[in-house]
């Protein structure tokens, strides 16, 4: 185990490295993220409106919106265009559902050389798996609380 003297030295070193390491300009990056994310959401809104005008109810329109955005993202990933969008937009490309689709498609395409089962099959979830697991788990946990509160009559 490192002594407290060593730990202090390590901490000093980390602070020193942090000080001299340049970083991307945050306001600039935030602006790029704002426009990239905003545009993707606007496109989503357009799909929502188009589906609604064709007579879809709200939920169905929402499903179509996810579906088409995911399709678009997978195609752009295959054509090696989505990485460029991600490089430019940062969180603007990561946060929308298209970022989730990109992580699934990128893994599927990259690991095809390792076979259908252990390549694509396992590794397709490399980045997306945690999202699905913890999404399901957190909603399940919240569901239990909701269920108990309902039994107790706190929520009707």
């Amino acid at each position: 185990m490192p002594t407290s003297e060593q730990l202090k030295k390590q901490k000093q070193y980390q602070q020193y490295v942090k000080r001299i390491t340049p970083s991307h300009s945050l306001p600039l990056n935030m602006t790029k993220a704002f426009f990239t994310g905003g545009l993707i959401c606007t496109l989503g809104q357009w799909i929502l409106n188009a589906a609604a005008s064709l007579g879809a109810d709200k939920e169905t329109a929402g499903s179509w919106c996810s579906l088409l955005l995911i399709l678009l993202s997978v195609i752009l990933t295959g054509l090696n265009i989505y990485p460029e969008i991600g490089k430019f937009g940062g969180a603007g490309a990561l946060v929308p559902i298209t970022g989730f689709a990109n992580s699934v498609a990128a893994s599927a395409i990259e690991f095809q050389t390792e076979g259908q089962v252990f390549g694509i099959g396992c590794k397709i979830f490399t980045i997306a798996g945690p999202v699905i697991l913890y999404g399901i788990l957190s909603s399940w946990g919240l569901g239990i609380v909701y269920y108990i509160l309902k039994l107790m009559g706190v929520i009707l």
């Binding site: 990485p83 937009g89 990128a106 490399t126």
Partner: peptide, 17 residues
Amino acid sequence: EKEFRFPLGYGNQRPLS
């Protein structure tokens, strides 16, 4: 990239360091 980071088609930003 595959060994240490992400699949190549993944759209991430690389820090300046």
